[in-house]
């Protein structure tokens, strides 16, 4: 079609590039930090706090063993055993898909701005057809959440006596935010009741669907908040483990 002057990349004059740029910076920074932290294989436990990047810690060689599934032969970072679950959950998340398709793939970079690639098959082919396994990552994230809550509970235990430190509150907030993120997931919304055509016959699931729907409306905000917080939680535990800072004790 020869529409000439009309056929530009975009006619938008606003700062449409700002949002994708911020997402690249935000997600990029997190990816770099979390990869670095996961490969450290040390300084992830400062009693009684376990970094969420290493929880549950599944190897005998862990600084703090959650479940000893892997024997002493396992010498790599125990974070690798576990991070693929939250990583895969976020990678296949409906919100993050939007964020990275726009920012990293430029498909499209912003609304009414032309795609970078000339061909497009969306999520109909490999590898993007694998996005359909999102709900499996949702299920897999649930036991991880249970461990994170357990970590938060034992963060009240300072060598046998009850206490509350800043780290206790940090771990509780982390478990709460990650729970909100998991339960506000679009797949969770579907599994709770979105797949039904009649709510009348399933009042319990209708109620659950209603609550998840409210949470789901904030999925993007929760995704970012929980992402930043889980990173900061690791930073806090790491700084304690390094002895750079001292834990603030309230009780």
């Amino acid at each position: 079609m020869s529409t000439l002057a009309i056929d530009k990349r975009t006619l938008r004059q606003d700062t449409w590039w700002l949002e994708p740029m911020l997402v690249v910076l935000g997600l990029g920074a997190f990816a770099v930090y979390s990869t670095w932290a996961a490969l450290q294989n040390g300084n992830y436990y400062a009693a009684p706090y376990l970094s969420p990047f290493y929880s549950p810690c599944l190897a005998i060689n862990c600084e703090h063993v959650s479940v000893p599934l892997f024997g002493s032969w396992y010498n790599w970072s125990p974070a690798i055993l576990i991070l693929w679950i939250p990583g895969g959950f976020r990678l296949t998340c409906y919100y993050y898909r939007k964020a990275y398709y726009r920012s990293f793939f430029w498909s499209p970079p912003a609304c009414a701005v032309r795609d970078a690639a000339s061909g497009y098959s969306g999520e109909t082919r490999f590898p993007f057809i694998l996005q359909n396994i999102h709900r499996y990552f949702f299920w897999a994230s649930l036991p991880i959440l249970a461990f994170l809550w357990w970590d938060a509970i034992i963060a009240f235990n300072f060598g046998g006596s009850f206490g509350i430190g800043l780290g206790t509150l940090v771990l509780i907030a982390n478990a709460a935010l990650l729970s909100l993120y998991s339960f506000s997931c679009h797949s969770c919304r579907h599994l709770c009741g979105g797949g039904l055509n009649s709510f009348k016959t399933a009042p319990g699931r209708y109620k659950a669907w209603g609550i998840i729907t409210k949470l789901n409306e904030k999925h993007m905000q929760i995704a970012w908040t929980s992402l930043v917080w889980v990173g900061l939680t690791d930073v806090y535990v790491r700084l304690l483990a390094h002895g750079v800072i001292q834990d603030l004790r309230f009780i």
């Binding site: 898909r97 398709y101 498909s107 499209p108 098959s121 969306g122 109909t124």
Partner: peptide, 15 residues
């Protein structure tokens, strides 16, 4: 209908 082509970048919702 090609639902799989959609990569949920949400421009439809925005406009």
């Amino acid at each position: 209908a090609g639902l799989g082509f959609c990569n949920i970048t949400k421009c439809c919702t925005e406009v």
